[in-house]
Write a protein that binds this DNA or RNA. Structure first.
Length: 483
DNA sequence: GAGTGATCATGG
DNA sequence: CCATGATCACTC
């Protein structure tokens, strides 16, 4: 008998039937708009205290106090009879509004067992069968005031992305079969990824602490777990909660399916190669915006979207960014480096690589090269090039991580401190951070509104705001490979 | 024209 | 108003 799960006890004390999906979902709905302390006070478990140091404790508290399911490490779903898994998802407020804070761990991977599994009966698929997602707004200052916002009953066999999830799983399994578990990386996957799990870090000899054995190779591999990527959960949350902000490629582009939409989009875009933006826009009866929407507008109209302001559902799910790449016609060189999202010096130094903003951004980028003869060539005269999708290779990713770590070290040692230097007739401000010419793929560089738009490091130095950028030479190389 | 600090311009 | 995509612009 299952020791932690007592249906009669749950029915009596928690007033719902844990064997019935409808009953579970209504119970979840009762929690909406409550904060954690209110949710607990309605429970027979109300004397339960929140452990402020435990990362997942809000999840545990909801599971225990609201559903009567004590934490356990059983391989069975949280609601075993209804075959439903419970996942509590933290949201955080960013410049984009409320967004999903982190990836969702599904189950740990045992490399030896994985290679003996097939997808239909796999451990991962059983866990993914049906999931009750409960979203709450994380309040870092006062965890008990974190507020429950939304619940969603998600079923694997009801979503279009099932083929993607399956192929993600197959890719991981294949790597392990080949004895390459040590080469696994999140970037191999689009929705279901093999993420690192365990304590992380390295021991005093510089050896990773989370190593385990793998079949078909004697090389130790990092311990990993299957997780649903943040971008996917975030897209799902935004779509359900905000409504009408997405259009789907699969629904719009003829012949596109969950497993081929990236190819279909690229092929469609290639069919516009060589056209002038002006002619293209005329044909589609649109005006191309001059601002940062240009790339998105082109791609959306090319695909057949009705509304240029919609977000692209599938790209949001797999975390693909769409960027215009201005190119000089003469020598096919990019006009500029490509900027990433801004960071705060005090925050970036606390990041772990696996969870870093930068890693998220470089997950996958769809570049649309736009050729122009001169800086001032009017938009309508610029020519659409051959779009390409960049996902960093393992080597590229290693370089990016090295360079990222180097910058973190520099910031920690105070190299972000600005000083004024004379430059001809003017003064300018420089930091001691490494320059673009010292790195291969990424660099740090000012990205502020003006000189007054400043950030602050942990020493109280106040440099202007900075961002990570993709090096111009590197982007040029990508372009050359994709002609 | 490479290199890099400084900013413009747009839209949410 | 501010983050963000995209560029400008100055010096060597």
């Amino acid at each position: 008998m299952i020791s932690h799960y007592n249906k009669e006890r749950i029915k009596r004390f928690y007033n719902y039937d844990p064997s019935k999906e409808n009953s579970i979902f209504s119970k979840a709905k009762e929690l909406l708009n409550k904060n954690i302390s209110e949710a607990i006070s309605a429970s027979p478990y109300r004397s339960r205290c929140l452990n402020p140091r435990s990362k997942g404790d809000i999840g545990n508290i909801i599971q225990e106090c609201c559903f009567g399911l004590p934490a356990n490490s059983s391989e069975l779903p949280d609601f075993p009879e209804a075959k439903i898994e419970l996942k509590i998802i933290p949201l955080e407020r960013t410049s984009q509004g409320l967004t999903v804070k982190e990836r969702t761990k599904i189950c740990s991977i045992n490399y030896h067992k994985l290679i003996k599994e097939i997808w239909p009966s796999s451990h991962a698929k059983r866990k993914l069968n049906k999931i009750l997602f409960i979203y709450y707004e994380y309040n870092a200052l006062s965890k008990l005031d974190s507020k429950i916002k939304f619940c969603d009953m998600w079923a694997l066999n009801k979503i279009k992305e099932q083929p993607i999830i399956r192929s993600d799983w197959e890719v991981v399994k294949k790597k392990v079969e080949q004895g390459l578990a040590h080469e696994l990386s999140e970037t191999l996957s689009r929705i279901l990824a093999a993420t690192r799990s365990g304590s992380g870090g390295v021991d005093q000899n510089g050896i990773a602490r989370d190593l385990t054995t793998q079949p078909n190779s004697r090389i130790p591999a990092l311990r990993r777990a299957f997780s649903i990527k943040q971008s996917y959960t975030n897209q799902r949350w935004l779509e359900l909660f905000k409504k009408d902000i997405f259009e789907s490629i699969i629904d719009t582009l003829p012949g596109a399916s969950a497993s081929n939409f990236e190819d279909k989009v690229l092929k469609k875009l290639w069919s516009f190669k060589g056209q002038k933006l002006g002619d293209f826009a005329n044909k589609l009866k649109i005006s191309i915006p001059s601002g940062k929407n240009a790339a998105a507008a082109i791609i959306k109209k090319a695909i057949g979207f009705k509304n240029v302001n919609s977000r692209i559902k599938e790209f949001d799910q797999i975390g693909t960014e769409v960027r215009v790449l201005p190119i000089r016609t003469k020598d096919h060189k990019p006009w500029e480096a490509v900027s990433f999202s801004q960071f705060k010096f005090k925050e970036v130094i606390k990041e772990a690589w696996e969870d870093s903003e930068l890693l998220q951004f470089v997950d996958s980028i769809l570049f649309i090269p736009i050729y122009r003869k001169a800086a001032k060539t009017p938009l309508s005269q610029r020519v659409i090039g051959k779009a390409f999708l960049w996902k960093p290779t393992k080597n590229e990713l290693e370089t990016i991580q090295e360079e990222w770590s180097m910058y973190l070290d520099e910031i920690k040692s105070g190299k972000a401190k600005p000083r004024k230097i004379k430059s001809g007739s003017k003064t300018k401000e420089v930091t001691s951070l490494s320059k673009e010419s010292n790195t291969k793929i990424i660099h740090i560089r000012p990205h502020a509104k003006n000189r007054k738009d400043r950030d602050e490091d942990q020493f109280g130095n106040r440099p202007v705001k900075h961002s990570f950028w993709l090096n111009k030479a590197f982007v040029h190389e990508l372009l050359r490979k994709n002609v």
